[in-house]
């Protein structure tokens, strides 16, 4: 394997498990991973290439599913449980460390690695100081050659003005988007819809790779589930 370079597409789900996620929201959060497994089982071209990892965060952040081939029979899916506050900073720092070590390991194993994709789901404001989460996000996205394509998703009490800062890249031909639950929507349902968006992005990106692309492809606005809206970084200045 030392010289051959299979191409991999790392996907990370970074999900808020602060106490406000208790109940149906947590239930839907736990349903995301099995849904991704089902989608990959029907997409063999993609499933040979996707690596999936899960980080959850409350007062601290933890790797709940190390980046892996989800269809590998040795993988068991974690059960997410709620804990504590909402530290964006802890999530960003752990994510950066994970990306750095995962990509390093994959390359050492002889793989070519596409730019990682991150779906970040939160239902509230960060409880860290603003300079703290901003600093941690800057470390994740600036002067970091393997910075991820970062897609923030907000449900319930999430603040669009704060989440909009997390769209990365914010501009340019490969700009990402933010997904928000529309007012009046059931937040647990919104999490299920965001899972659908994550899965269709994964499928579209796999097809894009087959067509010579290398980036994360997000669904067109008209293809979004109703109850979710897409925003670019300019929507909230």
């Amino acid at each position: 394997m030392e010289s051959e370079k299979a191409k991999l597409l790392p996907f990370y789900l970074v999900i808020d498990v602060s106490v406000s996620m208790t109940g149906d929201k947590l239930k839907q959060a736990n349903a995301i991973m099995p849904a991704v497994v089902d989608a990959l089982a029907d997409a063999p071209i993609l499933s040979d290439k996707v690596r999936f990892g899960v980080i959850d965060f409350g007062s601290d952040a933890q790797v709940r599913l190390p980046l892996c081939d989800l269809l590998d029979e040795n993988v068991s899916l974690p059960a997410l449980t709620v804990r504590g506050a909402t530290s964006f900073a802890a999530a960003f720092r752990l994510l950066r460390a994970e990306i750095e070590s995962n990509v390093k390991q994959l390359k050492a194993d002889g793989f070519q690695v596409h730019r990682p994709a991150v779906f970040f789901i939160s239902d509230g404001d960060p409880t860290d100081r603003e300079d703290d989460w901003r600093g941690a996000f800057a470390e994740l996205t600036e002067n970091f050659p393997i910075y991820p394509n970062f897609v923030p998703c907000g449900v319930d009490d999430a603040n669009p003005k704060i989440l909009a800062n997390l769209i990365h890249p914010a501009t340019g031909p490969k700009a990402m988007q933010m997904y928000l639950m529309q007012n009046g929507q059931n937040p647990a349902d919104a999490i299920a819809m965001i899972a659908e968006i994550l899965i269709s992005s994964m499928l579209a990106s796999g097809q894009s790779i087959a067509q010579g692309g290398s980036g994360l492809l997000l669904p067109d606005k008209q293809d979004l589930p109703s109850g979710i809206s897409a925003h670019s970084s300019e929507d909230f200045v």
Partner: peptide, 12 residues
Amino acid sequence: GDPLGHGTGAVG
């Protein structure tokens, strides 16, 4: 050519 890499692996 990509799976062949440098020709020193399993495909080579």
